[in-house]
Design a protein around this nucleic acid. Structure first.
Length: 371
DNA sequence: CTGGGGAGGGGGCCC
DNA sequence: GGGGCCCCCTCCCCA
């Protein structure tokens, strides 16, 4: 289930879990029956709605007292069984000959990542065939597939909701009761906790793509620490909002949301000169000084000017003769923290007495994380 | 020639 | 969006 949750809009995840827990407390009963080719499949309404735009829209139109039987005639029972299995386990098993059918069914149901996974799987299957390898495990972990995609190409903008809705063509689907599929989908953020699709597209996107770089949150140069130990340490420091992808934790939900963008790999701010992309607008703005050569941070004591304010700060220490970064393993001192780090890595990294200290002038700052 | 350090530059990302 | 801190990379100088 945890893998599945990666694909659900961040804002909806809590609601989804709450509903699931509530249903568990009520005895694990499934509250909807889906009939396909006269075969009944029992499922949780919230699971279906969380994974499929089709069901999300469908259940939005129904009150809880409405019929809890849904009949589908646009999908094969064995395909639906696998789709259902995917919804509950985030594992997808599909025969090669059924990939197209699975993809079209996924489109109609508004399960876009299912479509992506089938594409991946088809390519993988073709590759295996070409390489004349014995067929392996057809079950493909959803996150692995997406991580594979991220490793192979840059992240493209891929509208999740829109494609899902477009896939539901007229006459392509119907259920036992009449429903108007073109109204109100996602427009009421309060009824079930499903937020507005327009405002959550970006969040959906990065959650859809999952974690891009598992090692990115580890401070460079630090000894790898156990993930749980790190998380525990961070969470105890009055940071209740922990990231589920890395050990970091934050003081507010807004900071966590901002941080989650890092894991998406989604960089909407692109430099028109060199094409380099950034997560944040201000970072792009700063980058543009590379091309414009604008140097807004001038030194008061000499003619020099800098593109980064922090560079000016480093530079000003030269004028003041400050060397606040002291090596704990020898008597060297440095103007810049990175110089100290480089020195320590080259001169003392084999030294078990791994210590660096700061002069009183810099003791307020936590300069370098060093295990 | 090589290694260590000074200094500038650019990016990541937390607050 | 801005401020700020930290990191790494690179060029250069010098012992």
């Amino acid at each position: 289930m945890s893998d599945l949750l990666r694909y659900i809009d961040y804002d909806h995840k809590a609601t989804f879990l709450k509903m699931l827990n509530q249903q568990r407390m009520e005895g694990e009963h499934c509250d909807v029956v889906v009939v396909v080719e006269n075969i009944e499949f029992r499922a949780h309404r919230c699971v279906l709605a969380a994974c499929s735009n089709y069901f999300k829209k469908l259940f939005k139109k129904q009150s809880d007292e409405d019929n809890s039987i849904v009949e589908l005639d646009f999908i094969r029972s064995d395909i639906f069984e696998e789709v259902l299995n995917y919804m509950y386990t985030a594992r997808l098993a599909v025969r090669k000959k059924d990939i197209n059918m699975m993809m079209s069914s996924g489109q109609i149901l508004g399960i876009n990542f299912l479509d992506n996974l089938c594409t991946q799987k088809r390519e993988l299957t073709n590759m295996k065939t070409r390489e004349n390898q014995a067929p392996g495990d057809h079950g493909m972990r959803a996150q692995d597939a997406i991580l594979k995609e991220l490793a192979m190409e840059e992240v493209r903008k891929n509208s999740f909701y829109d494609q899902g809705m477009d896939g539901m063509g007229p006459g392509g689907s119907h259920v036992s009761q009449p429903h108007n599929y073109s109204t109100n989908m996602g427009k009421d953020p309060h009824s079930h906790g499903w937020g507005s699709s327009s405002s959550s597209d970006m969040k959906l996107e990065y959650l859809l793509y999952g974690h891009r770089d598992h090692g990115s949150c580890q401070a460079p140069g630090t000894k790898p620490m156990d993930h749980n130990a790190k998380k525990e340490r961070l969470l105890t420091a009055n940071r209740p909002y922990g990231c589920e992808h890395c050990p970091k934790a934050f003081t507010t939900a807004a900071h966590l949301k901002e941080h989650l963008k890092i894991h998406s790999g989604f960089k909407p701010h692109r430099c028109v000169v060199c094409g380099k992309a950034f997560i944040r607008g201000p970072d792009l703005k700063r980058h543009e000084r590379v091309h414009s050569n604008e140097r807004p941070f001038g030194c008061q004591m000499c003619e020099k000017a800098f593109k980064h304010k922090s560079h000016l700060k480093d530079h000003e220490r030269q004028h003041r003769g400050e060397r606040p970064f002291n090596c704990g393993s020898c008597d060297k001192a440095f103007i810049k923290a990175s110089d100290l780090k480089r020195h320590w890595n080259t001169m003392h990294s084999g030294n078990p007495r791994r210590q660096m200290s700061l002069s009183p002038a810099a003791s307020q700052q936590e300069i370098i994380a060093c295990s």
